[in-house]
Nucleic acid binder design. Structure first.
Lengths: 365, 365
DNA sequence: CTGAAAGCGCTAACAA
DNA sequence: TTGTTAGCGCTTTCAG
């Protein structure tokens, strides 16, 4: 089978020190003379020594395992978060245990605590919508297990949270639409269970304000984050008279639904209707026309979350605010308001410019 | 912090047996009188006892960890595989370590062996395109580490592989198109590095054969699995004269690209052109019109792979062939051949029937 | 069928 | 700055 494991003792033997000294070197503990440390390091290298995680965690307190809790908002989101967290974990000698959950499960809290204690996880990272699950968060808090929240609903716990600027970027997107001449900009609200939904909606209103457009409740429809809910919301919204010339959907799936509905109603995009989304899932750039949207820095947020968690586990956490900006991605689903020369771009010019690109990025405030 | 761990000794105490007997019960070993076993089980229950993985793996040989190797073909594929494997692992007391790889990395083999020995993985599951990476597979074989391949290129190692019927389902899809009256059916080939690509192409040819249509090389274009390559391939293919009335793309992303190109060329789908894909990624049902495609039983395959792996680890593997059928999903992107009444369905009737549904499923041979 | 003893490879006190 | 001595909680011999 596999090559027999080299142990700490063999390393100690080769380096002519005690195993405790080797242990010190492995764990970056102080009180080792540089020359000794080097000798140990050489021995480790020579023997291809890797400490046994099982032994370490049995003897010590830690498992060197951290858990990632998520309730699949979209698979691309999940894989991005995983990769971001994984890179950081591995780099610091930790492994990742992934944990799909159901945020509506009444005994989610019980399950999670059980899983944490069974697997002896050293810490947890929660993504939305789990990061805004009050009961879960306070259960973890009570258990005293370290955790970090990705995109939680409020900024009350900065040392244990990583944010992006949803509100600002939505405001900016709305202003962008206004700058194209649109005056009636509909908004499809996301699933009420998700905290980010409220923030995005506020950003939309901010943008209206800043562009001097009055918020009109009739231009707003409730969606539920799904493609189908986007279709339905768009159907209602597009039957208004006058009808909005632009629609801002709270996520890309709903935007895709709205786009399909527009096609079915015979509306040209962007000639008759501009549509924008939020997330920049892979789908966005594969729609016809390619969707203008907002890209979240998911991977970076995940990496930062893992960094904060590991820092917390080591007891070095600090009280800073960690926020990473989102980015507008302008593609082909947006254009000047129909029958208007207010827009800055002539009809069609935009399409030509970007048709082959992955979209134009504009750094968000 | 967390509640102090209950140990095997406390259980033994309560059950009035030795720790060895408790160990036997935990590991489902024989030679325990049923009544004794029950007493132990009760004690375990009463104490909420969970064995320490670290201790088990330190004392025993196993780590109770299995690894999943993948090179992200698509995020929905990855998350599906993960969930399938995870369910099975957890159910049998194992944990999953995920491992994104780069199949083109020249020292992939080295990295993987190192990771396996460092993390002391008990076994591995490989997904395409890693499962058709000859060098990798033989490295693992040499190391003697148990593994299972998902959808490998050939059926030479059935005990360690899980298959689906790519070829048969592609044949069937082609026949379906032929049954709608199409006689010139283009095919966009996938990335040459992926073994499944060849199989699917063979299935397409089978279908042509079976439908009495002659294979014409000019109706074939090379793609590279990406959306963009689908656009390009479609552009070439649709400029043929006469132009194909149906296009079969080797995956959904390329089909989406082809669809976009068709839209840009002003072709109606399915009135002027039928398009089908392969995979049934979430994108497929969100396109306009919704894409007819083939659904792979990813989760089931993953579950089966985990089952085979665990069986192998326990030394009980058998030499059966494990193949799980794929399914045709008929949506709105396919219809009768234009200017033809050969199809079994009148124009438009299909659309009506399925417009709100997730598609009609037809069990594949 | 059951149990006693000896580690697995490491970390955590405590000495030196 | 370094080493010694106990275990961590389990599985594995090998005896009963």
């Amino acid at each position: 089978m596999a090559i027999r494991k080299t142990t700490i003792e063999e390393v100690a033997g080769l380096a002519r020190v005690s195993i405790k000294t080797v242990s010190r070197v492995i764990n970056d503990e102080p009180n080792v003379r540089p020359s000794t440390r080097q000798r140990v390091l050489d021995a480790i290298e020579r023997l291809h020594y890797h400490p046994s995680q099982s032994a370490r965690s049995l003897a010590g307190a830690r498992s060197y395992l951290i858990g990632l809790l998520y309730d699949n908002p979209s698979s691309s989101y999940v894989t991005n978060v995983q990769e971001g967290v994984l890179d950081r974990c591995r780099a610091e000698g930790y492994e990742l245990i992934i944990n799909p959950c159901d945020y509506k499960d009444p005994d989610l809290c019980t399950q999670v605590s059980k899983m944490v204690s069974q697997a002896r996880l050293d810490g947890l990272i929660l993504t939305p919508p789990l990061s805004d699950h009050k009961a879960l968060v306070s259960t973890l808090d009570d258990q005293g297990i370290p955790f970090v929240l990705i995109a939680p609903p409020d900024r009350s716990d900065p040392a244990r949270s990583v944010f992006t600027d949803d509100r600002e970027s939505c405001c900016e997107m709305t202003c962008y639409l206004a700058s194209l001449g649109h005056e009636q900009i509909g908004y499809i609200i996301g699933h009420p269970d998700h905290a980010a939904v409220g923030t995005r909606f506020l950003g939309y209103k901010d943008g209206l304000d800043r562009s001097g457009i009055r918020f009109d409740e009739r231009s707003t429809e409730q969606g539920y984050n799904s493609f189908e809910s986007g279709e339905l919301a768009a159907r209602k919204m597009l039957s208004l008279d006058p009808r909005p010339t632009a629609v801002f959907a709270g996520n890309d799936d709903m935007a895709a639904g709205a786009m399909k509905m527009a096609h079915e109603l015979g509306l040209g995009i962007p000639e008759d209707l501009s549509i924008v989304g939020f997330d920049d899932v892979p789908l966005a750039s594969h729609l016809w026309p390619a969707l203008t949207t907002i890209r979240q820095p998911i991977r970076e947020m995940a990496d930062k979350a893992a960094e904060l968690l590991l820092r917390q586990i080591r007891g070095e956490s600090r009280e800073e605010l960690h926020s990473i900006p989102s980015t507008l991605v302008i593609r082909d689903s947006t254009g000047p308001k129909p029958d208007s020369n207010n827009g800055r771009l002539g009809s069609g010019s935009m399409k030509e410019a970007d048709s082959e690109s992955r979209g134009t990025e504009i750094r968000s405030a």
